[in-house]
Amino acid sequence: MIRMIGAVLIGCSTAYMGVSLSAGARRRLQAVTAFRDSLLRMQQKVTFYRLPLPALMRELSLETSDSLAPFYALASDRLEKNRTRTAEAVLLRCVREQENLGLPEEGLQCCSKLFRCLGRMDSEHQAEALRRIIGELDELEGRLREDLRRQGRCYCALGVCGGLAVTILLV
């Protein structure tokens, strides 16, 4: 009986390890999805309302997910108070201060691309640039989702197999 309980515990802990390994990947996926969704909102506001960036960021801070709201609030505040830096520098600094928004490396590259052009074009070109970056984030999201599915299955299989192996050995 004790062997059985020990085997189950070891099996569970192996599965838990697998799950926690995939949790990081899931968080990155969620961060990319949330960022992509916020850019969709941004695109609408640029196209239809043409809000200046500080006001746009303030609105996004009220409308986006909890994970991104502090970033947009900070960005709005910093842009309002900015006197010496370019908007790109201000926004990149805000991203760094918000722990890179939980984005993976490719996501951060999209961020840089966006901030390099944000506010420097007329509305049509701005919307087009946003569309392109949203497209890139879509691709990234697809890749991350696929990775997560594969990794999840792999970790799950490892956990179950490991557990079974230990059970057999012990029993």
Partner: peptide, 16 residues
């Protein structure tokens, strides 16, 4: 460039 950016609220599209 810096002055123009600041004058338009970092948003040329808003003042186009």
């Amino acid at each position: 460039r810096t002055l123009l950016e600041a004058a338009t609220g970092y948003s040329l599209y808003a003042a186009q």
